[in-house]
């Protein structure tokens, strides 16, 4: 079947199988930032935005993206790099495999919550697993990133 969606701001047409998952479609379209880390919707690595809402692309049929707006990390590279520099400054980028999903959710949180407290941040991002950092460095980076924006 054929679908049309807005992918990172541009119209994208694709021929897909009805059972194709959005994750696999996005990778086949060159959005390699989208990673698979589990098969049970637990890890958050595959997070993209669907109409601006952070979504697990492993759990959405590509067919459902028809007529919708999909954003991957490739579509917000500048912002990703700005926040990513904070991650790296803490050494918290580490293996980097969970970074795209985390960054997508952090940027979504920034749009959704106003001045979130640390506990709110933890709760918002609880679905983004990381095995390298124990989260502490990530949390420092997020806090500094949000504060910098506040001060600016």
């Amino acid at each position: 079947m054929n679908i049309e969606m807005t992918l990172n701001g541009k119209l994208a047409k694709a021929e897909i199988e009805p059972g194709t998952l959005l994750l696999d479609l996005l990778r086949s379209l060159g959005c390699y930032s989208v990673k698979r880390g589990c098969e049970t919707s637990n890890c958050g690595l595959c997070t993209v935005w669907m109409d601006g809402v952070p979504t697990l692309s492993c759990s959405v049929l590509a067919a459902r993206a028809d007529g919708h707006e999909i954003t991957t990390l490739e579509g917000v590279r500048e912002e990703a790099e700005a926040f990513g520099a904070f991650l790296a400054a803490e050494g918290a980028d580490q293996c980097g495999f969970c970074s795209p999903g985390l960054i997508m959710n952090v940027l979504a949180m920034e749009r959704e919550l106003e001045s979130p407290a640390m506990d709110e941040i933890r709760e918002y991002l609880a679905g983004n697993l990381c095995r390298c950092t124990g989260y502490a460095g990530q949390m420092r980076a997020i806090e500094k990133y949000l504060n910098r924006k506040k001060e600016a």
């Binding site: 959005c31 390699y32 930032s33 989208v34 990673k35 991957t72 990390l73 490739e74 590279r77 990703a80 790099e81 926040f83 990513g84 520099a85 991650l87 790296a88 400054a89 050494g91 980028d93 293996c95 980097g96 495999f97 970074s99 795209p100 960054i103």
Partner: peptide, 18 residues
């Protein structure tokens, strides 16, 4: 000195490196 990792830009911008 706590310099950032040399590969961080690729990692945080989701470059195909894996």
């Amino acid at each position: 000195s706590s310099v950032s990792k040399k590969d961080y830009r690729a990692l945080v911008t989701g470059k195909p490196v894996y």
